[in-house]
């Protein structure tokens, strides 16, 4: 494999990291039955906070923790609004996304365009692993945040599908009443998972501004990624592995667009910029019931079921609904 291609793949994995972390955070939240629609604004605000705090304190870890705190607070607002105040999660999330985006611009002014030297999370090629052919260069030659994203994928997958609390986690998103009858404190757990998910969104924001694309600028360079992350969760069928696949798919397309742009092929930039959005619509179309069934008919009969199971994407049944069963 030649070096140029390896470099593109390596960049792909790096640039997908924020999307991976954000989409995994949202997966945790939505698996508990809560939608955090504020992702797009949250990513901007937490990216700004991470860079701003890291810049002011000179400590990147403090910046990352501050961003996670901000992400958690935004998620807490959504949890309180939906659980205690019984408000529409979509409405509150949408207002928060606009508010957070404007806040990032307003409070980000002093940090816009500030020097970014030394403002990246520690670069750490993993010993031994990095010497593996191909895989080593693509996956194990990155900064720490990239490895965190790997750990999160496997950790969340193990948590959701192989542990007892993970079972309860899924239950409160699917059948909250049944889970409650078995003694699961539905709303308390929803608070916890919404906040954990939100703090991961904060980590994702930080992984832009002190990771992939250090620094801060106006308008926020990650604008739009939050919506893509939300779509990836749906495309990923709320399963960590498929979510990661979706994030790499989007990042890969973007890397490809970038490569085309810097090559001699004359394709309008605007066309390249629309591709992720067309892909977003296409993926959502693909996982919506009717389209899959029609496509499956093309396949040989024996493969149909396997393909269906792979492509099907059913949301947690209780997603976006509130649970009042605990009221006495």
């Amino acid at each position: 494999m030649d070096d140029a291609l390896l470099n593109i793949l390596r960049t792909l994995v790096l640039s997908a990291t924020p999307l991976v972390i954000a989409a995994l955070g949202e997966t945790i939240t939505e698996r508990a039955g809560v939608i955090n629609l504020s992702l797009d604004g949250s990513l901007s605000l937490t990216a700004m906070v991470a860079f701003g705090v890291a810049f002011a304190t000179g400590n990147i870890l403090v910046g990352i923790l501050a961003a996670m705190l901000v992400g958690a607070v935004i998620a807490l607002i959504i949890a309180v609004a939906s659980i205690e105040l019984r408000l529409d999660q979509v409405a509150v999330g949408f207002v928060l996304t606009l508010l957070a985006a404007d806040m990032s611009q307003f409070w980000g002014v002093p940090y816009a365009g500030k020097p970014t030297a030394g403002m990246t999370a520690a670069y750490l090629p993993l010993p031994l692993l990095k010497d593996l052919p191909i895989v080593g260069r693509v996956f194990f030659d990155h900064n720490i945040l990239v490895y965190v994203s790997y750990a999160l994928v496997f950790g969340i997958w193990f948590w959701l599908f192989s542990t007892r609390p993970g079972l309860a986690h899924r239950a409160i998103g699917e059948r909250p009443a049944a889970a409650f009858a078995r003694g699961t404190p539905v709303n308390r757990l929803r608070y916890i998972y919404t906040i954990v998910g939100g703090s991961l969104v904060g980590l994702a924001g930080a992984s832009y501004s002190v990771g992939v694309n250090p620094g801060w600028a106006t308008p926020p360079p990650m604008q739009g990624d939050g919506w893509i992350a939300l779509a990836i969760v749906i495309f990923g069928g709320w399963h960590p592995f498929r979510v990661v696949l979706g994030a790499y798919l989007f990042a890969g397309l973007r890397a490809l667009a970038g490569a085309i742009q810097s090559s001699d092929i004359a394709v309008p930039v605007t066309l390249l910029n629309t591709i992720p959005w067309l892909l977003m619509i296409f993926t959502l179309l693909l996982v919506s019931g009717g389209v899959i069934e029609r496509l499956l008919r093309i396949l040989p009969r024996g493969m149909q079921n396997r393909a269906r199971n792979f492509l099907r994407s059913d949301p947690p049944v209780a997603l976006g609904t509130r649970f009042d069963g605990e009221q006495r």
Binding site: R86, L99, D102
Partner: peptide, 26 residues
């Protein structure tokens, strides 16, 4: 002051009213 303050204030206003509406109804 950066003009994005307008957006911050509008967003905060709507968020506060939404939350207060919910609180009132509860």
């Amino acid at each position: 002051l950066d003009s994005s303050l307008t957006g911050v204030l509008q967003g905060a206003l709507v968020l506060a009213v939404l939350l207060a509406n919910g609180l009132r109804d509860r």
